Simulated scan of single mutants.
Amino acid sequence: MRYIRYACIALFGIALIAVAIANRGLVSLQLIPSEVAGWFSVNPQIELPLFLVIFGGIVVGLLVGFVWEWVREHGQRADAARQAREMRRLEREIAKLKDEKHAGKDEVLALLDEAS
């Protein structure tokens, strides 16, 4: 199973290298459209290889997706934390009630009563 995973990672790496080699031509990225840039008399742009633009888009998409899921699951995480706190509180209360029930008894009798 480990070798299959390594083979998949190697194939994925080879595919990424092939995409990078095939798309190494420079492209111009502009921050704002040229029509709007004329209004402000600024035209911020940068020249990058196309594969960096592609890989950057993939990374930004993954980050946006991770953040989106984290925000979406906030309610579920809050419910789970609330239930965990309630469970700890109830466990403490059960332990306290057991101690009160067996307060004046012999330890052996308390263990036998607890087991039944």
Rank of each mutant, 00 (worst) to 15 (best):
E107S: 12
I46S: 10
R92Y: 01
A15N: 10
Y3D: 12
E114C: 11
K105H: 12
K105Q: 13
D99I: 11
D113W: 12
S116Y: 12
A22V: 13
E91W: 05
A37P: 04
E35D: 14
A110K: 10
N43F: 10
V42P: 01
S116P: 04
G75V: 08
P33E: 08
Y6P: 04
N43D: 15
E35V: 09
I46L: 11
V19W: 03
L29E: 08
S28V: 13
I9Q: 15
G38I: 10
P44E: 14
Q45P: 02
N23Q: 03
L11T: 06
A115C: 07
P49E: 06
E93S: 07
R89L: 02
I9P: 13
L112A: 11
F40T: 15
V64I: 15
K98Y: 09
G38N: 11
A103Y: 13
E114A: 12
E107C: 11
L52D: 01
D106E: 11
A18L: 07
L109I: 06
L11V: 05
Y6I: 07
Q45N: 13
I58P: 11
A22C: 11
V64Y: 14
V59W: 07
L16R: 01
E47R: 03
V27F: 04
L112G: 08
I54G: 02
R89E: 02
L48N: 02
Q30H: 08
G13W: 08
W39Q: 12
A80S: 00
I9H: 15
I9S: 14
E35M: 09
I46A: 11
G61N: 06
G56V: 04
L62H: 14
P44Y: 08
I46F: 10
I4M: 14
A78P: 09
Y6G: 15
V71S: 00
A80H: 00
M1I: 10
F66Q: 09
G57A: 08
Q83P: 00
R88E: 03
L90T: 05
E73N: 05
W68C: 07
G61Q: 03
V36M: 10
A95D: 09
V60N: 08
L26W: 04
L26H: 07
I17H: 05
D106A: 08
S28K: 06
F55M: 05
E91K: 10
G75T: 10
I9K: 13
L52T: 05
F55T: 01
L63R: 11
G65Q: 05
I9Y: 15
L16S: 04
V42I: 13
S34G: 05
S116T: 14
I4S: 14
E114V: 13
Q83V: 04
L62V: 11
R2M: 12
V108Q: 12
L111P: 03
L109R: 06
G104D: 05
K96W: 06
V27K: 06
E69C: 01
G61M: 08
A84G: 01
R2L: 15
I14W: 12
A110P: 05
I58Q: 10
L52Q: 07
A18G: 08
E47K: 09
V64L: 12
F12M: 11
V108L: 15
K96A: 07
L11I: 06
F12L: 08
L62T: 09
R89F: 04
W39D: 15
A115Q: 05
F66E: 09
